[in-house]
Simulated assay, not measured.
Amino acid sequence: MGKVVHSKSGRDKGKYFIIIGIIDAEYVYISDGDLRKIEKPKKKKLKHLGFTNLMADEIREAILSDGRISNSKIRKFLQVEDIIEEV
C-alpha cells in the first residue's frame, strides 16, 4: 500500500494512482482522490498497472495506522509527483 502506479489499460490509461488496498495476488484497490475517491476506490488487476519508484510514505502510514486518509492528500501528492516526473 502507498505505492504510486499508473494505469496501462482501460479508460484511465496513463493516469496516476496510489494503491490503498490489496485484495489478493491479482487485484488491488487504487485511488486518485479525484474521480476515484478513497470511499469508492477502483478495483484493478496488477497486470494492468505500471509501477513507479515512488512511495507515498505519509499516506501509507495513515492507511496502516487508522485507515483514515483524505482525498485531498492523495490529490496533492499525485499533483506534485506528476510535476516532478514531467520535468
Rank of each mutant, 00 (worst) to 15 (best):
V80A: 15
S31T: 10
F17D: 00
L49Y: 01
K15N: 12
G14F: 10
L78P: 01
D82P: 04
I18N: 01
I69D: 00
K8I: 03
E26T: 09
E26A: 12
D24N: 08
Y29T: 15
G50M: 05
K73H: 09
I38P: 00
K15M: 09
N53L: 08
N53F: 09
G33M: 06
I18C: 06
A56C: 09
A56W: 00
E39W: 05
E81V: 08
S70V: 10
L78F: 06
G33H: 08
Q79K: 15
D34S: 15
E26K: 12
F51V: 04
H48A: 06
V5L: 00
L35H: 13
S31L: 03
L49H: 03
N71G: 11
L49V: 02
V87H: 07
D82M: 06
D12T: 07
L35D: 15
I18D: 00
E86W: 02
G21I: 13
I83F: 10
I23C: 03
E85A: 02
K37I: 06
I23Q: 02
K43Q: 06
I74Q: 03
K43H: 04
M55W: 11
S70L: 08
A25N: 13
G2L: 04
S7Y: 03
I63C: 12
S65T: 13
A25Y: 10
D66T: 13
V4H: 00
S7I: 02
Y16W: 07
R75F: 13
R68G: 12
E58Q: 12
D82Q: 10
K8N: 06
I84D: 08
K45P: 03
G14Q: 14
A25T: 09
A25M: 12
R60H: 10
I18G: 00
I20H: 06
F77D: 03
E61R: 15
K76P: 04
E58I: 15
I59F: 02
E86H: 03
K42Y: 05
V4C: 01
R68V: 12
D24T: 04
I38D: 00
L46Y: 04
N71V: 09
K13R: 14
I38A: 00
A56Q: 02
K73E: 07
Y29Q: 14
I20P: 03
E81Q: 13
D34Q: 13
N71R: 06
I84K: 06
I23T: 08
D82G: 05
A25R: 12
D24S: 04
K8H: 06
G50R: 10
K37N: 10
M1K: 07
S31K: 07
E39I: 10
I22K: 08
E61T: 15
V28M: 01
K76C: 14
K40C: 10
K15T: 08
V4S: 00
N71I: 09
I69R: 01
V80P: 03
M55V: 13
I20S: 05
M55K: 12
D24P: 01
S70Q: 11
E81I: 10
Y29E: 15
K43P: 01
V28P: 00
M55A: 13
D34P: 12
M55D: 14
F17V: 01
K73N: 10
K15A: 08
G2V: 05
A62F: 11
G67K: 13
G14K: 11
